[in-house]
Design a binder for these strands. Structure first.
Length: 641
RNA sequence: GCCCACGUAGCUCAGUCGGCAGAGCGCGUCCUUGGUAAGGACGAGGUCACCGGUUCAAAUCCGGUCGUGGGCUCCA
């Protein structure tokens, strides 16, 4: 009699099966429907192919297309099919890696001729044939030596390099439709489980992401087990395009780029309003949180950068200015100079902590290919701050930073997520201080009951840090804020304070940013709000629309009383029809349109139309002013997104 | 920086096989005076990114430069 194993289902029931039973068989016993929908199986936490024998007692979970894990399996299987199609259509192409990624998959190829858009269509056609052939994905475990022999014969040098790094004696290979790839798996049972797919783009990449190594051709694609999900995915891409801050920035006249200053935005008057409002809000928050503000020079002698270490490690990213007598560099960071503010006078332990904010304009010479809209620029304005404190104050100060950050974000509707990064292998500074600091950071996170993810050994070489990410309205994550401890800079710049025993001691330094840079943050805000800013941020808050020339006089009165109360208001007195004026204001995403004519002039009222919402009816001008003032002062969200 | 694609009016874009530079929006002037998303007429506006080459002839073909976009971490 054959040996039996115990299979435990997610609901706790157990079923006995003969040893070597496959996921397919287990699923069939549970139900025919499940067997049909099954894509993979989780066995004791590991993903298995449905055809792979289970050899021991196991807790299992049959995965259908409802699970995220099975999506990655579908994507990965599709990348194999794509690789097969590519090698058939373009003989001599060598395969490298083809993993699933966030929303699909890619495969990197070494090919003599780069792929064209037409090639993508050909590849898609061939893939469709393979998929409809309903070929099985079969797994085989073979000796590594045999695998080496096999891929050597095929001339797949990249697979050989991968094999040389594998320590196990056996490796797995997967075959579909007579095409075989080295792969850890698992895969979907048959090619026909893929119901929809699309190849999205061609891109260059490097073998192992290393620019010194072979340049490869990457094809990105995505696939799903039904038509609908692909459609949804393509819609998301479309939606993201509509929200693109470069497009909206141009339409709303927020900023412009010009060849004359690559990577540096020209802020137009409308965009400047965003900067001014953010600055105002930021400074209010900083004042409340006990910060002082400083400003340090933009152009500094290179000896400063030598001392800070930037000259050795960051010079490629710095703009260097030689006036013929002296070599200067534009500051790429504020921190080294902030130490001069601290050291401008003798500090006592009683003075600490000192929190120095700097809204500083920085220049970084990013390589041309890295630039992108407002997200990656060469000149930007950082909302920076440096805190100088006693080691015993770390927890409290980090707490303060986190509170400031979550407070700041809440009015934009952002939920912060925290990542705690600890000491990396290559770290500078006193190990004892490192330990203390990590304990203190953890204490800060714990006292606030903050849910965080630990990124071990991911800290900066000069200290541990907490990174904060937010998700925007489209669910995309952005890293904006960071809180970093620094033990190295106080050392390099020989900072000190006088302790209670009249002895010199080193302070600990914290670098922190709330939203990183104005440029990037505004880019994120534009996409988050689709340009439909809350009223307090909107470049133009109200437009007054007289119905005809006869009403310009009253419209001017309305306009002036709004100006007087500090509302940003335009008067649209063009000889256009009201409909056209409304259309133009809607296009410019202006929060409020005040239509005024005969009726309104008679009783000092305005007819309010709200952006994207429509006619709100008539109300007294005074009432409207009171309401909009309140909305602006409280910095209310408009919930239009 | 590297690979691919792209660069035509302020904006969005068309321009076939190499043969006189186009549209809509916007802008200007005039007409129109209106009740919640485009009223009408006329007009101005171009070194086809830049430099060079091929050709009788280049926006168009070739080479280079600059700029823009996508990608270059997601580990068989």
């Amino acid at each position: 009699m054959k040996e039996e194993i115990k299979i435990t289902l997610p609901d706790g029931t157990t079923i006995k099966h003969p040893k070597g039973v496959t996921g397919n068989e287990v699923a069939s016993v549970i139900g025919a429907g499940l067997a049909k929908a099954a894509l993979s199986i989780k066995v004791n936490g590991n993903l298995y192919d449905l055809s792979r024998p289970i050899l021991e007692d196991a807790e299992i979970e049959i995965l259908t297309d409802k699970s995220d894990e099975s999506k990655t399996i579908i994507w990965h299987s599709t990348s194999h099919i794509m690789a097969q199609a590519v090698q058939e259509l373009f003989p001599g192409t060598k395969v490298t890696l083809g993993p699933p990624i966030a929303d699909g998959f890619y495969y990197d190829f070494d090919t003599e001729k780069p792929f064209t858009t037409d090639d993508l269509l050909k590849i898609e056609t061939r893939m469709a044939e393979i998929i409809s052939g309903d070929h099985e994905f079969t797994r085989e475990t073979i000796q590594k030596d045999d695998a080496i022999k096999m891929f050597k014969e095929k001339g797949e040098e990249y697979k050989l390099e991968i094999l040389s790094e594998i320590e196990d004696e056996t490796v797995s290979i997967y075959t579909q439709n007579d095409w075989t790839d080295l792969c850890r798996g698992p895969h979907i049972p048959t090619t026909s489980k893929i119901k929809s797919f699309k190849l999205l783009k061609i891109a260059g990449s490097y073998w192992r992401g290393d620019e010194k190594r072979q340049q490869l051709q990457r094809i990105y694609g995505t696939s799903y087990s039904n038509e609908k999900e692909l459609e949804q995915h393509l819609n998301r891409l479309k939606e993201a395009k509509l929200r693109d801050h470069r497009k909206i920035g141009k339409e709303l006249e927020l900023f412009a780029f010009h060849d004359i200053a690559p990577g540096s935005p020209f802020w137009l008057p409308n965009g400047m309003i965003l900067i001014r409002e953010l600055e105002k809000y930021l400074r209010e928050k900083l004042d409340e949180a006990g910060y002082v503000e400083a400003s340090t020079p933009m152009l500094v002698k290179k000896s400063l950068w030598e001392k800070s270490g930037h000259w050795d490690y960051y010079r490629d990213n710095m703009f260097v200015v030689d006036d013929g007598e002296e070599v200067y560099a534009l500051k790429p960071m504020n921190c080294p100079e902030s130490t001069y503010i601290y050291a401008a006078k003798t500090r006592s332990y009683r003075d600490l902590p000192i929190r120095i904010a700097e809204i500083g304009r920085l220049h970084r010479n990013e390589v041309s290919g890295a630039l992108g809209g407002l997200f990656r620029v060469r000149q930007f304005t950082m909302d920076d701050a440096h805190l100088f404190l006693l080691p015993s104050q770390i927890t409290e100060e980090v707490n303060g930073c986190m509170k400031l950050i979550s407070d700041f974000y809440s009015i934009f509707g952002f939920e912060p997520k925290y990542y705690f990064a600890t000491k990396p292998d290559k770290a500078l500074g006193d190990p004892e201080l490192w330990d203390k600091a990590e304990v203190a950071l953890k204490a800060a996170l714990d006292t606030q009951n903050i849910d965080y993810k630990l990124n071990e050994k991911d800290g900066a070489f000069y200290g541990p840090k907490i990174d904060i990410q937010v998700k925007d309205a489209l669910g995309r994550s952005w890293q904006l804020a960071t809180i970093q401890l620094d033990f190295v800079l106080p050392e390099r710049f020989e900072l000190n304070y006088i302790d209670e025993n009249d002895k010199k001691q080193r302070p600990v330094m914290i670098h922190r940013a709330i939203f990183g840079s104005f440029e990037r943050f505004i880019g994120v805000l534009i996409e988050h709000f689709t340009g439909n800013f809350p009223t307090w941020l909107a470049p133009v808050q109200v437009v007054v629309i007289p119905i005809s020339e006869k009403h310009i006089k009253y419209a001017t009165k309305v306009y002036e009383s709004l100006i007087k109360t500090g509302v940003r208001v335009n008067l649209d007195s063009r000889s256009e029809k009201m409909g056209a004026k409304i259309r133009d204001s809607e296009t410019m995403k202006i929060p409020y349109m005040l239509v005024v004519g005969e009726k309104e002039a008679e009783n000092s009222s305005v007819s309010v139309r709200k952006h994207l919402t429509g006619d709100q009816g008539q109300k007294p001008l005074e009432e409207f002013i009171k309401e909009i003032k309140e909305e602006i002062t409280e910095r209310r969200l408009n919930n239009l997104n």
